[in-house]
Design a protein around this nucleic acid. Sequence first.
DNA 1: TGCCAGGCCGGGT
DNA 2: ACCCGGCATGGC
Length: 225
Amino acid sequence: MSVPLMEIYERLLDHFGRQYWWPAESPFEVLVSAVLVQNTSWSNVEKVMGILREEGMRTVEDLDDLAIEELFELIRPVGYYRIKGKRLKNLLAYIRDRHGGSLEAMFQTPLDRLRRELLEINGIGPETADSILLYAGNLPTFVVDAYTLRIFARHGWAEPDCDYHQLKSLFEDGLERDAALYNEYHALLVRLGKERCYKRKPQCQACPLEQFLPEGGPVEPVDGA
DNA sequence: TGCCAGGCCGGGT
DNA sequence: ACCCGGCATGGC
């Protein structure tokens, strides 16, 4: 009983086209927005990324040097701004202390070791770490998120209560180890996840994976949290 | 208007 | 090992 990962991918790619992710302008912006987007809609993050650009916050050092109370004010519209400000500061301190403040240097670190170190930082969990590694560092680690779980549970390809690592392994064991593939695949899943039927609302406008739905409709529950 | 959003942590059982 | 509340703003 294996999941047709490449067929799913091709269906999504045919339907939506390439996504050109992560929607940010530099590895620095990827890293910052990966923290800011935790349990938050992208529109809030977009607004704050615009504020940071206007304020000239374009590097690790710029933000590292900023007083935390000032950081709170700049990122306020994102929501959870106090906790996220602290988490961002934790990450910036790690990059300063362990990599001389250089993202390029940081991404020279072997993937497994860098991932473990990121996960030790308070406020950096598996999704945030993997997003940074893949989308800022171009390193081959698959990113799993709430959409991925909802979509895969809905189609009966994953247990609704399976954990992050189980779902991640499903992709990494079944696909070529290729950062470009992981990048596009996850981006397409998020794109699909935003469709109404994957948010437990009325009907989806377009269901490119419809042919894969089990007989008798989606597996319940679709929720997945 | 209430409900939801591309998580993660800490405290209680 | 689980389960749960807290964190906060903006959009529909």
